[in-house]
């Protein structure tokens, strides 16, 4: 049986017609099931765990955005129950990597039930699905307890990727082919600076690629004692250094499309 989790923003009436179309298509495929509409008072992890424990749920499906997918992934880490995703509109950065189209087209992918097992990252005993982001160069990265990676002031951003679609790099400086593969037991650590291109003056988001490391275990701390640097997890949650980061031993089963990027 499928269990559906609706994102908080879907209570808005403007999504009514879209959701109705999705639900009709779900019913036509015979994959209907119980559902919960989230609000700010409900804890995603608790709702998922309550429902998969008490009912015959064999798939959890998130309808909404990337933040809810990340929360659901944490709840399902190590579980045999796969995670499905119906992205609403085209804001999702995870959907293209997973090969999942948006809106009701995603129901076809869900019904095909192509399941892959992917890595999860772990930072200070919390899981992350996609990436960690640090917008400060004043850190020291200690890799596998054997060497230190020290960025200088030209580095504006450090990203640690497990599963990601790298859009915002200055294409001239970017390696011609790069994948942040979620099945390689490694994290891609990318250090980038401000792009020098004319376009970057207009579009402030472009970055200049500088360094790339493949690591499975690392520590990050500020370069001065008693200093704490903020770190963004999966583009929605902030924690502070020091961080212990590694590939989690628990994996995630996820329903993907044929046009996935890994």
């Amino acid at each position: 049986m499928y269990f559906y989790l609706y994102d908080t923003f879907l209570v808005n009436k403007k999504y009514e017609r879209l959701l109705s179309g999705i639900e009709t298509k779900i019913a036509s495929f015979g994959i209907s099931g119980p559902s919960v509409h989230l609000n700010i008072l409900k804890n995603t992890k608790e709702i998922i765990q309550d429902n998969i424990n008490s009912k015959e749920i064999d798939t959890v499906v998130v309808i909404g955005g990337d933040k809810l997918v990340s929360q659901a992934a944490s709840a399902l880490a190590g579980s045999k129950i796969p995670l499905g995703f119906i992205p609403i509109f085209s804001n999702s950065s995870l959907a293209p990597i997973l090969g999942i189209p948006t809106n009701d087209f995603a129901v076809d992918t869900l019904a095909n039930r192509l399941i892959k097992t992917i890595d999860l990252g772990k930072v200070n005993n919390q899981y992350f699905l996609s990436n960690l982001q640090i917008s400060d160069h004043r850190i020291i990265i200690t890799s596998n307890n054997s060497c230190q990676i020290i960025p200088d002031k030209k580095i504006k951003q450090i990203n640690i990727y497990n599963l990601a679609c790298l859009k915002n790099f200055d294409q001239q400086s970017f390696p011609s082919s790069l994948i942040c593969c979620p099945q390689d037991q490694q994290l891609e650590v990318i250090l980038s600076g401000q792009s020098n291109s004319l376009w970057s003056l207009i579009d402030n988001k472009k970055s200049q690629f500088d360094s790339l490391f493949y690591l499975n275990k690392l520590k990050i701390e500020a370069n001065k004692p008693n200093k704490f640097i903020p770190v963004l997890i999966d583009n929605y949650k902030t924690i502070k250094t020091p961080l212990d980061i590694e590939i989690a031993s628990q994996k995630l089963k996820i329903i993907v499309g044929r046009r996935r990027l890994f």
């Binding site: 990597i97 060497c147 230190q148 990676i149 020290i150 960025p151 200088d152 030209k154 580095i155 679609c165 790298l166 390696p175 011609s176 082919s177 790069l178 994948i179 593969c181 390689d184 250090l191 600076g193 690629f209 500088d210 360094s211 790339l212 490391f213 493949y214 990027l261 890994f262």
Partner: peptide
């Protein structure tokens, strides 16, 4: 673009230690 890791022609992954980074 995303089908392969940063690779050389023989398919090995490439670590890049950039100009703005020091490794000790």
């Amino acid at each position: 673009m995303f089908k392969e890791k940063t690779t050389s022609d023989d398919g090995n992954t490439e670590t890049i230690i950039g100009a703005s980074v020091k490794v000790k």
